[in-house]
Amino acid sequence: MKFRVIVHIWRFYMEGFASMTLGRTLWMIIIIKLIIMFGILKIVFFPRYLQGTHEEKSQAVSTQLTDRAH
């Protein structure tokens, strides 16, 4: 019974994807965009500024917050 439901859902999606027209272009755009975002932008331009353990991060922020006060 469960297997039949899974097969049903699988077919539903596969037939849906197969019958797409404009959807293919849109999916292509989504995939390219995600690759650019996670494969290039995130890695090259957006490293995590705070590094280290929880304590090291809180110490770093604490130092910055107290040092920047006038």
Partner: peptide
């Protein structure tokens, strides 16, 4: 489709520019 995940860049910026 065009707008999907554009908000993710904002979240990237939180971690890098506004740590």
């Amino acid at each position: 489709a065009m707008g999907i995940a554009t908000g993710l860049i904002l979240e990237f910026q939180f971690g890098t520019n506004w740590s």
